[in-house]
């Protein structure tokens, strides 16, 4: 079985996001990047499947060379090889079509992604890829097991969960508790050094034009109420803010 895991490389959530005034875009100054936390779950489950049932795990990232250290970390966790589509995507469509052209050349049984990237929070790349390839699509998947005729999944839905039987090939968006995050072993780190990262050209355009980024202002009231007057809170919620 061939499993493709698509990873985003995103600023660590504790990063302070700032705007570069010369470009009006998010500044990359001082940011620490991590593999998207949901993507990390997807990768961890792929590695578990490889260990339990045997599978070839390929990691794919659409982005610049600065992400190679994170891709290397995925190889250290146990992925067999990696592909980087060398570009600077600005829209979900560009990421999706890059993934789709790779898969058209290299058919996969299973494509695992995170349910969303924590920078753009779009939650749609997996759906776009599934729609373009015609593969089955489920998102967000909380449990994934192999079955005789494909996969058995537990999927969150609006207002609950469902168990489904899903044929292959499929594209899935993953979320916890699908797997436990893993830490690379010393041996993994050593063997990752010789694993291959194939770099492919990025060749897609988008009709969506990004104008600028802004930092959201958080105008909270910051009013403190003394513990002995706690009941006042209810009055304030009723009269000052009308939320009750």
């Amino acid at each position: 079985m061939k499993i493709l895991v698509c990873i985003s490389c995103v600023p660590d959530t504790t990063s302070k996001i700032t705007i570069d005034p010369s470009t009006s875009q998010i500044s990359s100054q001082g940011l620490t990047f991590i593999v998207g936390p949901y993507d990390d779950y997807a990768l961890s489950r792929a590695i578990e499947l490889k260990e339990s049932n045997g599978a070839e795990v390929i990691v794919l990232h659409v982005g610049g060379a600065e992400s190679e250290a994170l891709i290397r970390k995925c190889l250290a966790l146990g992925a067999d090889s990696a592909v980087r589509i060398d570009g600077n995507p600005t829209t979900s469509a560009q990421i999706a079509s890059s993934i789709v052209s790779f898969v058209n050349q290299n058919p996969m049984d299973l494509i695992l992604m995170g349910k969303e990237s924590i920078d753009y929070n779009s939650g749609i790349v997996h759906g776009l890829v599934a729609g373009a390839l015609g593969y089955s699509h489920f998102n967000p998947v909380m449990h994934l097991d192999l079955a005789d005729d494909g996969l058995k999944l537990e999927v969150e839905m609006d207002g609950g969960k469902m168990d489904v039987s899903c044929p292959l090939p499929a594209v899935l968006g993953c979320q916890e508790p699908i797997a436990e995050w893993k830490i690379p072993s010393m041996r993994g780190i050593m063997t990752a050094r010789t694993k291959e990262i194939t770099v492919l050209p990025f060749d897609t355009t988008s009709q969506i034009q990004i104008l600028k980024a802004d930092i959201a202002e958080t105008a909270r009231k910051n009013k403190m109420i003394k513990a002995e007057d706690a009941e006042q809170l209810i009055d304030l919620l009723r009269t000052e803010t009308n939320v009750l």
Partner: peptide, 23 residues
């Protein structure tokens, strides 16, 4: 935005080769 709506919109967008914006 809901799980079902975003899943459906993204599949539809790709099936009809249109771009989608979420969030």
């Amino acid at each position: 935005k809901s799980i079902q709506v975003d899943n459906l919109l993204s599949l539809l967008a790709a099936s009809s080769s249109q771009e989608m914006i979420s969030g």
